[in-house]
């Protein structure tokens, strides 16, 4: 099962560390344990009252911006509201940068809002990459949170760097630089073997674009054939490209029945922009939302050679009788 780190979860983690730090100075032994027990309640009732640095406040603003840009904005059709929300999120990011110029999530997300050229954006990301790494390491060291080798994701202070790399990887993917995307995903997975950010999900799709069946199989094996909404479509699309249409059909059915709205999602193949915070939009694992996000991220595969329409593979999926029937059932059950 794959989980995507919700920005608030990371904020909770950061503040929990601060709380433990300050509690350790004040309390001892059983009193310490009691003090730690207070934390969840404190976070829920009075997050702002918890001891925190400017860097933590900046990150909290990033969380709020992310909630707007990666969620609220999709809950409305009203352009005026969208503009308003974007302006609010932009203000949050600007404030975050005032509080902490080294809040690299804010730096990155603020830059995305002003992208004019993806090629220039990639160059900018690359040029800053070493600085981001060094800065994160320095902060992690100061907090006593330098991660062990190949476990970079364990340290909350290193995750902005991993997210920076993931941003580079998916920009490469969307701009058609597949080997570079794969190299970057591989680097992330090497730095963080647990792959808390889900670089493996992007890597699966890159293997499909390169039509590297062996690579895809190796990746899935490396993650113990984890069940997630990316590996199955990747295998399905690979089978289609290899003209193993019966296998592709079988995998497509499995995918369609993997969640309540499978038919609907696979027929529509909607695409929405990736999350600014951590590429993968947040979803509840194992639900239709997970499949929706996975199919949206597969647009680079499904839209290939389609011009203004679905690609031949996208059409093959959408017009599959099982998909069509399931989609119609989804509609009539009112679950769409």
């Amino acid at each position: 099962m794959v989980t995507v780190i919700h920005p608030r979860m990371e904020d909770y983690e950061r503040l929990a560390l601060r709380w433990i730090d300050s509690a350790q100075k004040e309390y001892r032994d059983s009193h310490l344990m009691q003090a730690l027990d207070f934390f969840p309640n404190m976070y829920n009732k009075n997050r702002d009252g918890i001891p925190q640095t400017d860097s933590d406040r900046a990150f909290w603003l990033v969380c709020q911006a992310a909630e707007i840009l990666d969620k609220s904005i999709y809950e409305t059709d009203d352009n005026a509201v969208i503009l308003d929300l974007t302006a609010t999120a932009t203000t949050y990011l600007d404030e975050a940068l005032q509080l902490d110029p080294h809040c690299y999530d804010a730096v990155r997300m603020r830059q995305i809002l002003d992208i004019e050229s993806h090629a220039d954006y990639i160059e900018w990301l690359k040029s800053m990459s070493d600085e981001v790494k060094e800065s994160c390491e320095s902060i992690a060291k100061e907090a006593g949170m330098l991660p062990p080798d190949h476990m970079m994701g364990l340290s909350v202070f290193m995750r902005p760097y991993l997210r920076w790399l993931l941003n580079i990887a998916y920009e490469y993917y969307m701009c058609g630089h597949y080997r570079l995307a794969l190299e970057t995903c591989t680097l992330i997975m090497d730095l963080d073997n647990h792959d808390c950010l889900g670089a493996r999900l992007l890597a699966a799709y890159v293997y499909v674009k390169l039509e590297d069946a062996e690579g895809l199989a190796g990746l899935i094996h490396m993650f113990n054939h984890e069940e997630n909404a990316w590996f199955l479509p990747a295998r399905c699309c690979m089978a289609y490209k290899q003209r193993r249409l019966e296998d592709a059909e079988q995998l497509l059915r499995e995918l369609a029945f993997s969640c309540d709205l499978g038919g609907n999602i696979l027929m529509r193949q909607e695409e929405i922009p990736p999350a600014l915070f951590g590429y993968h939009l947040v979803f509840a694992p194992g639900t239709s939302d997970e499949l929706f996000v996975a199919v949206s991220e597969a647009a680079v595969i499904l839209a290939e050679n389609g011009g203004d329409y679905l690609s031949p593979m996208g059409s093959w999926i959408a017009m599959n009788p099982v998909i069509a029937e399931l989609a119609s059932t989804n509609e009539s059950e009112g679950t769409a």
């Binding site: 039509e211 289609y240 490209k241 290899q242 003209r243 290939e304 050679n305 690609s311 031949p312």
Partner: peptide, 10 residues
């Protein structure tokens, strides 16, 4: 036709 279908390796 395979190229049109984006089945490049085939």
């Amino acid at each position: 036709l395979l190229i049109q279908g984006a089945c490049y390796r085939e």
